[in-house]
Design a protein around this nucleic acid. Structure first.
Length: 246
DNA sequence: AACTCTGCCAACCGCACCGTT
DNA sequence: CAACGGTGCGGTTGGCAGAGT
């Protein structure tokens, strides 16, 4: 088309100057609509590219560098349960992005997991009384809290603390606001995270009962405290409930 | 030193979902 | 209710750097 100027969006690596423009703009105005961010910040990028750059690189609070052992273990455990739900896994690793975790998984953990699985298969199943262990899963999942009658729900709720960010506890006691899916995940009156517990490859989530998730000596009703909360975390991870709801 | 191979990381792409019109 | 735009997510790719030959 002669005479028309097609505005081409720039692709490829971001220059320091572009980073600076985007950072300055978002810190000053917030992102709002990403496509307008690109225009208003004077960038020849599309909104999607800006969003990605911000989330994966420029956003404050991001951790850089190698994963710690604890982070690695978390990724392994969560991946075993959640599969390739990188964004969900990332929610439990503050400062890490889904992209980073995904890359890390593909580069390192996939190999290591093969080794580790063969090791763990040799171990007998741990049945610590402080843990609720999920049948069919090698890792033991902590049932951290049971929250009774949270907001609209008259059932006790089990929250898998590893699957909810601490921000949830600090900033948002209303479970229904946190995720629209939470209420959908009541199983026998217990709240669990979405679609993640399948006790076998042939079983669907809605076929899994609480019995599948709890092994003796668990008896939830005996463990619920006056506060409506219960802590199944091992000591070093234990948080004071007051802190969590402060 | 030159070349090839491999791993890592940043970014793109396509799709799905959601809210708005 | 369909169309549309914005956003989020997971898969994939391209390029760079370091290791190996």
């Amino acid at each position: 088309m002669a005479g028309t100027v097609m505005k081409k969006h720039k692709k490829g690596l971001w220059s320091p100057d572009e980073d600076q423009k985007l950072r300055n703009y978002v810190l000053k105005h917030g992102h709002g609509c990403w496509s307008s961010v690109a225009i208003n910040a004077g960038l020849q990028r599309n909104g999607k590219s800006c969003r990605l750059r911000w989330i994966n690189y420029l956003r404050p609070g991001l951790k850089r560098g190698a994963f710690s052992v604890a982070e690695e273990e978390t990724v392994l455990s969560l991946h075993r349960i959640l599969g390739n739900k990188w964004s969900q896994i990332a929610q439990h690793l503050p400062g890490r992005t889904d992209n980073e975790i995904k890359n890390y998984w593909h580069s390192c953990l996939k190999k290591r997991r093969v080794v580790k699985m063969s090791e763990t298969e040799a171990q007998t199943t741990k049945n610590d009384h402080k843990y609720g262990e999920i049948r069919g899963l090698e890792s033991s999942i902590s049932f951290q809290h049971i929250e009774r009658s949270a907001q609209n729900c008259s059932f006790p709720k089990v929250l898998f603390a590893e699957w909810l960010s601490f921000d949830h506890f600090k900033n948002d006691n209303n479970l229904d606001n946190h995720s629209s899916s939470l209420e959908d995940n009541l199983v026998d009156g217990l709240l669990v995270d979405e679609g993640t517990f399948c006790s076998g490859p042939d079983r669907k989530w809605d076929e899994v009962s609480v019995d599948d998730m709890l092994l003796p000596p668990f008896k939830l009703e005996d463990e619920i405290l006056e506060s409506g909360l219960i802590d199944y975390f091992p000591g070093e991870f234990c948080m004071d409930h007051g802190d969590m709801y402060a």
